[in-house]
Design a protein around this nucleic acid. Structure first.
Length: 568
RNA sequence: CGGGGCGUGGCGCAGUCUGGUAGCGCACUUGCAUGGGGUGCAAGGGGUCGGAGGUUCGAAUCCUCUCGCCCCGACCA
């Protein structure tokens, strides 16, 4: 590509709407443009990257034996009613009607459609197992789209669905996909981790997420180097630890704590660590109007664990001020377990506290020097909290480390969730109808582009992994307008590299070198060649890797060979 | 949805409080010079100030309504 044929518009300034670095750089480098909230156009430069990501995914899916197909974005409500998700899915499902008033939705995912295909096409166990995939547009009406294409409403996803006669075959198919995903993310040259995930409302027995590690990631993941354990923080079952509480030393006393409501204020007012305080969260109950959950002050409630408790309403709902007052007769901010007349659960880590602080169930008062049994009976104990750094690994190998990740892939064993409700069966050897077992496997294609930038950038711009860079190499002629030799050299080299199979970008604009260097850096092209008259006459050319600090001189004659070797 | 903020040329912003008929930087066009890290000078083009209604002799500015966008939001008791 010659830059004179390419309307490149780069920005020096950071657009005000972009918060994370990948979004800023994608706008500045001219990869994407926003059309409306959560809707983005991919400009030619961005699309080149997207296509390279898609090509790698396609190659690996094909290699794993999956079959590509393409399903519609617009899907009939009827199918969604059959699976039960027309009601279940909620407002993220964008619903619409056609001119005949028939109801449709924009597909946020394609389980319904693929199951419809499967039940019509697959009749015999002899046709199984099979894995269908597509790379296609999804629409999810997110409450709050953000971070550019990272959480957009319309995005590209690779989704795959496998069909099996029995669970053993499903396990095999799942494993095949797991291996394929591992290959895909390695080829994309991203630093990633495979973590155990919550199978969630979709159901199924096993589920893993693929996370690209990045500070700006929306998910927290916990892992242990020693034993290889890795999981989304929300799913970590924390092993009971801590043992019995220390012997009580302090006297139980009521302290006046005027207007001290939050853990932060309490900790500062009484000069105690939040870890030695007990906080009381009140959630909606099923049998009783309210249920209290007790945690140490520095721990966070885990939503999934709380929802799993008997008597706690699903989905989890924290009660508001008035509701808390009605249920407990006490002002929020001063709640504690002593004489609290609603069902109580205490986190296992809070049981080993001694001489702790908690609310006194009367306005403007807390208790100090509280001890279990002596002052307050121990309520029902449960694992209620999110894992924090230093917690023991459930696999037993040592402490957990917490990192942030961007979820770019997710694989599920669905089982018969959809084949049951939508009656997708095949005949088995005995001629009997058998509900098929399903697996489903997703990759956020557009999100990968943003994740790759989050992980690879510097003050000058993007630093593409070579596998997905829009161009392999950029050629910058110096003083081309003045020197016919430079112009000729640049043209020759450009054609040579192109013929040798490189995606080369020739910056033949009448710009000063500084502008070209700045743009080359911003666009993040992995390799840069600078053609200058003097060096060229001596058979030399300047090469610089986007990742290197310094340039080096190499012989012109061996440029293609040099690049091929550098590229691996 | 609740809370906060912002809509002025393609991008970044000033002007709004205190009403007087729109400005700066980048980008773009032309010319001259310059020519190895966002070059200088000069001359240009481009904006119904998100939209509608109102107040006023006069509205980007004041009032009402509306649309769009961005940020925060279980709780941290």
């Amino acid at each position: 590509m010659r830059l004179t044929n390419f309307p490149l518009t780069t920005f020096k300034e950071v657009p005000a709407e972009a918060e994370v670095v990948s979004h800023q750089l994608m706008l500045r480098a001219g990869l994407i443009r926003r059309l409306a909230s959560g809707l983005y156009s991919w400009l030619p430069l961005g699309l080149r990257v997207l296509h390279k990501v898609e090509a790698i995914i396609r190659e690996e899916m094909d290699r794993a034996g999956a079959l590509e197909l393409l399903m519609p974005v617009v899907q009939p409500a009827e199918l969604w009613r059959e699976s039960g998700r027309w009601e279940e899915y909620g407002p993220e499902l964008l619903r619409l009607s056609d001119r005949h008033n028939r109801e449709f939705c924009l597909g946020p995912t394609h389980e319904e459609v693929i199951t419809e295909i499967a039940r019509n096409e697959l009749k015999s166990y002899r046709q199984l197992p099979v894995n269908y995939y597509q790379i296609q547009t999804k629409f999810r009406d997110e409450i709050r789209p953000r971070f550019g294409v990272m959480r957009a409403r319309e995005f590209t996803m690779k989704d795959a669905y496998s069909f099996h006669l029995d669970e053993a075959s499903l396990l095999e198919g799942y494993e095949t996909m797991r291996v394929a995903y591992d290959r895909i993310f390695k080829r994309l040259q991203l630093e990633f981790r495979i973590v155990q995930a919550d199978p969630g409302a979709i159901g199924g027995s096993r589920s893993e997420e693929f996370h690209v590690l990045a500070e700006s990631g929306e998910d927290a993941i916990a892992y242990c180097e020693a034993d290889g354990y890795a999981a989304n923080v929300e799913t970590v079952a924390i092993p009971a630890a801590g043992g019995p509480p220390d012997e009580a030393k302090a006297d139980f006393e009521l302290v006046h704590t005027p207007d001290v409501r939050t853990m932060e204020e309490l900790s500062a007012f009484l000069k105690v660590e939040p870890a030695n305080c007990l906080k009381t969260l009140v959630v909606q109950g099923t049998d009783a109007p309210a249920v209290a959950l007790l945690l140490r002050g520095h721990h966070e409630l885990n939503r999934l664990k709380a929802e799993a408790l008997p008597g706690v309403a699903q989905p989890l709902k924290m009660l508001g001020t008035t509701e808390v007052r009605d249920a407990t007769g006490c002002e929020p901010g001063f709640l504690g377990p002593k004489d609290l007349d609603i069902p109580l659960y205490v986190d296992q880590a809070a049981v080993s506290l001694s001489d702790f602080v908690c609310g006194a169930n009367q306005a403007d008062h807390h208790f100090r020097g509280v001890n279990w049994d002596r002052d307050v009976p121990v309520p029902e104990v449960a694992d209620l909290r999110n894992a924090v750094a230093g917690d023991p690994s459930p696999a037993g190998g040592g402490p957990l480390v917490i990192a942030r990740g961007i979820e770019v892939g997710h694989i599920f064993q669905l089982g018969s969730r959809y084949s049951d409700s939508m009656k997708a069966t095949v005949l088995n050897k005995d001629g009997k109808a058998n509900a098929v077992q399903m697996g489903c496997y997703g990759i956020g294609v557009t999100r990968i582009v943003a994740a790759a930038i989050e992980q690879n950038n510097d003050d000058h711009g993007i630093i593409w992994p070579e596998a997905i860079a829009p161009f392999d190499v950029v050629l910058i002629p110096i003083n081309m307008d003045k020197s016919y030799r430079v112009k000729e050299a640049a043209d020759t080299l450009y054609r040579e590299l192109h013929d040798a199979g490189f995606d080369a970008l020739l910056d033949d604009r009448s710009q000063r070198p500084g502008v070209k260097f700045a743009d080359a850096d911003l666009l993040g092209i992995p390799h840069r060649l600078v053609i200058a008259e003097k060096a060229w006459d001596e058979g030399q050319i300047e090469y610089k890797s986007r990742r290197a600090a310094e340039a080096e001189m190499i012989p012109v004659a061996s440029v293609a060979k040099f690049l091929a070797e550098t590229r691996e």
